[in-house]
């Protein structure tokens, strides 16, 4: 088991190394002066340039430049944003939690909806329930997320006026930024009318979370269903029936756990879709997350911001994937190394 942890850790370190190398090379790949792409400062004079060259070791070899870059990354000096002039590290730490919050709620809701429905469909295999759930799920993951989000805005905020159009919380509430997670921030803060603030934040959250959930829960439903269908005819389930257990007992004690095991590593592979959808949805609902921030950065050709944002997001996703993979291995040591997606 120790070997697996070391191997996964190794993989993580190697991948992060490659990602950081890539993000450093982006400074050269992006149009414009590499020095500006790294620092984000507009060079005003020769002295200023000298200072920056000294800071990023630009008079030495590329290898030394890279080590200096890594050093600065760990010190928290990620450069400045070209459009706002603020330190990138602070900006990312402000917007990343908002994205994580959105994606987490969407994932939790999808698990709550997708897994039970998947169980239902799998247990009623080749029956009307199965077919109708399958049909709904195919529709669910064929919907373009951005279109769904627009339709929801049209119906729920413009026609019916039930839900707010965009943003994270009404501007009337002045919630100080502590953790970056809006619900947590409201609870930690000492503003008046905490209940109304929470209700308001939840109202803002409904549509973005729902539009991501539709796709993700459809995928989870299908993964669960396939897994249940494959587990139920196995020998140990038949043996449990032979011992005289009822349908309910067999499923609760044997079927459910064994069909949930293979789903976990597959979930890791779906995190890509989840993040892409979250980023698109953020743009539509003006949710102040990393996706909205990155898209704005590209509209304003803010190359330092894209470089830093890419590193932050990809590091987060890789960290998530590797840890889910390790977790799956820890709870199920018999798992084959080459588990692949079946929907």
């Amino acid at each position: 088991m120790f070997r697996y942890i070391v191997r996964h850790f190794n993989l993580l370190v190697v991948t992060l190394f490659v990602l950081s190398l890539f993000s450093f090379s982006l400074a050269y790949l992006f149009p414009g002066d590499p020095l500006v792409n790294l620092s984000g400062e507009t060079i005003q004079s020769e002295q200023h340039r000298e200072v920056l060259i000294e800071k990023y070791r630009f008079n030495e070899s590329v290898v030394l430049q890279y080590t200096r870059y890594i050093g600065l990354l760990f010190e928290g000096d990620w450069g400045l944003s070209k459009s706002s002039g603020l330190p990138l590290y602070d900006e990312i730490m402000h917007s990343l939690p908002a994205s994580i919050e959105l994606a987490t709620y969407a994932l939790l809701l999808s698990l709550i909806i997708g897994i039970p429905l998947g169980f239902l469909a799998g247990l009623k295999h080749h029956k009307a329930t199965d077919y109708s759930l399958l049909a709904i799920s195919v529709m669910g993951y064929s919907v373009p997320v951005f279109w769904m989000a627009l339709l929801m805005i049209l119906v729920f905020s413009l026609q019916l006026g039930w839900l707010p159009l965009s943003g994270r919380i009404s501007l009337l509430f002045d919630v100080p930024h502590t953790s970056g997670f809006i619900l947590l921030d409201i609870m930690l803060s000492d503003i008046k009318n905490k209940e109304t603030a929470i209700v308001n934040a939840l109202q803002h959250m409904v549509m973005p979370v729902l539009s991501i959930t539709i796709v993700t829960s459809a995928i989870i439903l299908r993964l669960t269903r396939r897994s249940v269908i494959e587990v139920m005819p196995k020998g140990f389930i038949q043996a449990a029936y032979t011992r005289g257990l009822s349908d309910y007992q067999v499923f609760m004690r044997h079927g459910m756990r064994n069909s949930l095991l293979p789903i976990i590593p597959l979930l890791a592979m779906q995190s890509t879709t989840l993040f892409t959808n979250a980023m698109i949805v953020e743009v539509i609902y003006s949710w102040p997350g990393i996706g909205d921030w990155l898209i704005q950065a590209i509209y304003q050709r803010d190359f330092p911001a894209i470089r830093a944002g890419m590193l932050a997001v990809s590091a987060l996703v890789v960290l998530l994937t590797v840890s889910i993979d390790l977790f799956a291995k820890l709870i199920d040591p018999t798992r084959d190394k080459s588990a692949h997606v079946t929907i």
């Binding site: 992006f30 890791a268 890509t272 993040f275 894209i306 890789v318």
Partner: peptide, 18 residues
């Protein structure tokens, strides 16, 4: 396997930026 984990939109943003 780890490259596969990077969101499509992010790859697109980087390529469009370059």
């Amino acid at each position: 396997d780890s490259v596969m984990a990077i969101p499509t939109l992010l790859i697109a943003i980087i390529i469009v930026a370059i």
